[in-house]
Nucleic acid binder design. Structure first.
Lengths: 242, 242
DNA sequence: CAGTGGTCTAGACCACAAC
DNA sequence: TTGTGGTCTAGACCACTGC
């Protein structure tokens, strides 16, 4: 268990420490249930101030990897580590998993938003949105049917290559920084058209996700309504009580 | 927009400020997109140090209510506020909503865990668990079918009144402090017995949730497998990019 | 009692955005 | 250039735990 910090690096000190602690947990150097040294000793060892060391530990507490208990100490949480539910697109999820995937664009057009879409995005009545409908497949097997609405004021999607770029990637590339997303996950029966697209039986169960994403100015930038084949997709997350 | 702090209160200063800021956002005193004063000015106004003021703001950033942008300022995120997905039981969720609910205990027994349950909870082979199976209804309508496994070393459920006390409430009352939960949400068809219980048609879609909860010592204390009627339940959450 | 994390202070320098 | 949030320091006192 060796941690080093590089004060010349542009990477924040607390982040350097958090990364190395996380690695130690991932590779078993710090085992489940094990207690780490107290904050003051750790800070002294690394030549850091205590607040900086605390910040490093807090990162891992927020990820659900460590638990702190006043008067006792800080311990590693048991159990294998899941990938946390992050603010990324499905495209990123699958890219990270190394799966071969394809995206078919079923529709891409400007339109006046319906009342509920305008309400979700907080748009005036005369605003226009891009409507995007896609079918995503992995290894040739259909996985998700996605419908998205993006205010035209956010990005110009005319001619965008959405078969090869994820929507979130395009938004990032055009300077939109996603910060917050609110989502709702449930389930329903597939309607006949959707069942055909996803190569499911009529009335098959689908996992559904509705999401509104906001950028770093607090502006709603995307409203998505997705449906997934539940045998091929699930949402994993870690909740932390603070 | 008036915030006051009480230095004699046992409530931390940063928390007092966070609560009042959240209230101002909830009641519209701070509107969507509005910018708040900078950290240093706010700290000075309230007679606090800047780190304390930052900590207060960070609480709301983590809740997805505020976004910070370096060089610019801190703004209120647009859109109506959803209740965040917290580390509570379904019992608490529904109590807060003020709904009348009932719970039927279908099974409560000690048993040797199956291999996968033992693995999820990180238990030795000779350990025993409480197996608990319940059906929860709201306003007379069945809502969820829940199966839970709790190591016998965590709590003694013999004679527990699980028709009237939530499982999490019992655990808290016996000194178990929940800190972290890892969960997986998906969907599947109801099997015939489940469909009958939930008063659904054969093969109806169900929303499923698997969860392992850990206490403040990092110990796995509960493994739950739940199924919900999707027309009556959904998971809402707010994701924040940090 | 000793040891731990929780909170708080009063500064400092920096990177970045907007003008 | 000015103002913002991001990071960092070197302390302090307190509450809680376990012995």
């Amino acid at each position: 268990m060796r941690i080093t910090v590089d004060r010349l690096s542009p990477v924040p000190l607390y982040f350097q420490v958090a990364e190395q602690l996380e690695q130690a947990i991932a590779d078993g150097t710090l085992g489940a249930g094990e207690r780490i040294a107290n904050e003051i000793a750790l800070a002294a060892d690394l030549g850091l101030s205590r607040p900086t060391m605390r910040q490093a530990i807090q990162v891992l507490v927020d990820k659900g990897l460590l638990v702190r208990k006043r008067g006792v100490g800080t311990q590693v949480v048991s159990g294998r580590v899941h990938r946390p539910l992050e603010l990324t697109s499905l495209y990123d999820d699958l890219s990270h998993a190394g799966q071969e995937q394809t995206t078919q664009v079923l529709a891409l057009e400007r339109r006046a938003p319906s009342d509920d879409v305008a309400a979700e995005l907080g748009l005036p009545e005369d605003a226009e949105v891009w409507f995007l409908e896609r079918l995503r497949s992995v290894a040739g097997e259909p996985l998700a049917h996605m419908r998205n609405h993006i205010p035209c004021s956010v990005i110009d999607l005319a001619g965008a290559d959405l078969e090869h770029d994820g929507l979130y990637r395009l938004l990032r590339a055009s300077g939109v920084v996603m910060r917050v997303a609110r989502q709702r996950i449930s389930a329903r029966r597939a309607d006949p058209a959707e069942a055909r697209m996803l190569e499911e039986k009529r009335g098959a169960p689908l996992l559904t996700m509705e999401r509104i994403a906001y950028d770093d100015a607090g502006r709603a930038v995307e409203y998505g309504v997705h449906a997934y084949r539940p045998d091929r997709y699930a949402f994993e997350s870690t909740l932390v009580d603070r």
